[in-house]
Amino acid sequence: MKIAIPVDEKNLESSVCVSFGRAPYFLVYDTETKGSEFIDNTAETSTGGAGIKAAQIIVDNKANALLTPRCGQNAADVIKAADIKIYKTTFSSIKDNLAAFTDGKLPILEEIHAGFHGHAGN
């Protein structure tokens, strides 16, 4: 299966990016081939709706799971509509998260925040 992670730099030693929509890159890791590919997040420079565009990129790259520290409502709606599961990263290192994911130790991301434009305060 293919796993996507927002990352700060284009290498496996990089840390997980704290933001999903405005992460500079996504790592797409293939658990079968152990191959990794870094894709540019063209949503990074969007003035608005970055989460939606970033999520579209994840979907278009045919990821089966997304590992992220947090995720906005709009982005989560896109990801879920594509039947991609969202897991919460628990380490800052990419490798630790991948290992934890493989061991089934990463929790499903429960708290979806309101996002830049939505529903805050309700």
């Binding site: 704290v18 933001s19 608005g48 947090r70 309101a114 996002g115 830049f116 434009h117 805050a120 305060g121």
Partner: peptide
């Protein structure tokens, strides 16, 4: 406020 810039400042 509570809008978009605040949410952006909260991350991390």
């Amino acid at each position: 406020g509570i809008g978009c810039p605040v949410i952006a400042s909260l991350s991390g």
